[in-house]
Amino acid sequence: MKLLKKSYVYFAIGIILFFLLTMILWSLINQWPWPNLWPKQFDLRGLKFAFGSMKSYRILLSSIGLSGFVTVLTLLICYPAARALAFYDFKGKKLISFLFLLPLIVPMITVVLGIHINFIKLGLANNITGVVLVHLLPGIPYGVRLMETSFRQIGQSIELQAQVLGAKRWQVFWYITLPLLFPGIIMAGTMIYIISFSQYFITFLIGGGKVMTFSLFIFPFIESGDRTLASALSLLFISSIYLVLVFSNLLVSYYSKNVNSN
């Protein structure tokens, strides 16, 4: 059984590494014509373009800013919803809980095509506000579910206990709920960030090409078949997400070590 488990893990790692290494290899190539098994010519053109030009960093930064903002906004929206679903009983709770999952079930394209028409009427198409609004959609199911689970784990009685000991509502939130919910918030936030960061189609449709994100930046290179540039930019894409994961892990472990000790 143990061996089987181990081999599953190695298999998964192997697959990931295979594609990652292929991408790294592609980013270093100038020519790799068929039917050669090994690239004919290497050069740093791709890496220079991706990692050495201001343009890619500028787009990366604005994309990080957009997704960061979307993450904060989504978390703010999900917080009360998650809390209500975890702690309160109300009519239609099951239905509402299900509705929160809809963005996972109904394909985004169908929804966003409908939204697009209305956004045009409302003047929200082709601008950043519209893109931020539409980016809220795919993150909500994750935000609500992850935070709801965290709320359930904490339970409401510990908040009541703080109140009984004389804490005002904001003090309960600041000293009890927030620190206890922190790992859950970070987890949900990371998920929401990655989802927003990876959106291509909805950004393209609502932003009308006027709002540039990193996904939008990479796409033409993939489409035009410049695999070297596409791979190099994808490496930058992956690195930035990897950094976010590292950062969120650091935050959680910092929390459990230091915020803990108060």
Binding site: A162, L165, K168, Y175, L180, N262
Partner: peptide, 15 residues
């Protein structure tokens, strides 16, 4: 759970 014994005991007064 995120507070030491001392912080737990002092919580009410701190509030």
């Amino acid at each position: 759970p995120h507070m030491t014994v001392k912080a737990n005991i002092g919580f009410g007064l701190r509030m």
